[in-house]
Design a protein around this nucleic acid. Structure first.
Lengths: 213, 213
DNA sequence: TCACATCCTGACCGTATGGTCAAGAAGAGA
DNA sequence: TCTCTTCTTGACCATACGGTCAGGATGTGA
């Protein structure tokens, strides 16, 4: 048997435990909601005694806050796709791909985010009012530029963005419903590709940004 | 002062109280989630003592179940729009209007539904597997017929439906985010109209069902 | 009017939960 | 080796929650 593991340094222990706890917490918060989640459940999933959780995160709220903030960072990162794109076909296409990939690989995070917003964002309202507003204004300006340059139809950029968010996140947040309608099975690689392709096709054609017709 | 209220009959009392409780419960479940909602909160909002709630609904689960089932009925009803429509412009257009109207007037219901599905539908899984599957198959057939008749492009009907659900329900479920991005104000009549118009415009053009270009 | 069924509700109970603590184990640094 | 800091954890506590119940109030039907 290997047993090659040298004893972890204090710093490593802290890093590793915080990582494990945050990972477990994200799952439990996603599955049970903030109110339904219990520290005991998170502790069990993380493989640590409950008291140890309170050593690293003083309260349930503090742990939750940490989880939500991390998800928000991730959410914003998907926007890089938008920025250096020459036009909507590349920019919006890449954005859809990126957000669908997040929905597929981090559905728990998406659910926690959705839950937080649905409950009037008690924890990250300040982020919404600052970072998210700036981010949104920036992307709306990009879309408006594309419109002015004649690269797409004059669509209200705000509602276009909402549509992109809604559609892509739906595959994570309502993943259970989608699986049920797929005979109880998770979407296959091909089905994910079909979803991405259909979404891109409808939206890009819908804003007059491609020569599909 | 009026004081015209004759004493309510037993039957009326029951009807009225059940209505008031269900209404309060929907709000509280939407705002706090199942786990975060308390019978005391619901009782306070309904203006009744907590013990009275347990007289009409034996357990918290039973009350929640009732709330969710009612919402599901409402959700399905919006589909009438689809059925007698001659083509996608009328059918999908009317469906978008109907679902946006629900999002505007019953956002709490939409949130409860979203929450239920996000948590793997512990209460209405059987409905998903029967009624929802049938409903979805039926609408997919309608869309396929429109495609076969050349009234729209050959789009995967399944993902088109998901897109419709996602986009319209987003305005309820993420209403708080949308308000925050609207300087903290609820959408005006004009803004709701703009939202509906933009969504219909993108989707109908996106499936090749209108001569907008 | 009277007997009955339904409705109402304050007080109460068992449990589960978030959080605390004290005492010990274990790495760090000299 | 010795001391200090960090980490670990079983036992414990106060509170809040879902749910119960007994006894009274109120409409109902004969």
């Amino acid at each position: 048997m290997p047993q090659t593991a040298r004893p972890l340094s204090k710093k490593e222990i802290r890093q590793e435990n915080e990582r494990v706890i945050l990972e477990a917490a994200e799952k439990v918060f996603a599955e049970a909601g903030f109110g339904g989640a219990t520290m005991q459940l998170i502790a069990d999933l993380a493989g640590l005694p409950k008291a140890n959780l309170h050593y690293y995160f003083p309260t349930k709220e503090a742990l939750y806050r940490e989880v939500v903030q991390k998800i928000f960072q991730n959410w914003l990162k998907a926007a890089d796709a938008f920025d250096e794109a020459p036009g909507p076909v590349e920019g919006i296409g890449a954005y859809i791909d990126a957000k669908m990939e997040i929905s597929r690989q981090h559905p728990a995070g998406s659910k926690v985010w959705a839950s937080e917003v649905m409950h009037r964002a008690p924890v990250i309202q300040d982020y919404l009012e600052t970072t998210l507003v700036e981010w949104t204004d920036g992307r709306m300006a990009v879309i408006q530029r594309w419109i002015d340059e004649g690269k797409m139809d004059p669509i209200d950029p705000r509602h276009l963005l909402y549509m992109l968010w809604a559609t892509t996140q739906h595959y994570a947040d309502f993943g259970h419903q989608i699986e049920t309608l797929n005979d109880g099975a998770a979407l296959s690689d091909a089905q994910w590709e079909a979803a991405k392709a259909t979404i891109k096709s409808i939206i890009l054609a819908g804003i007059g940004a491609t020569g599909r017709h």
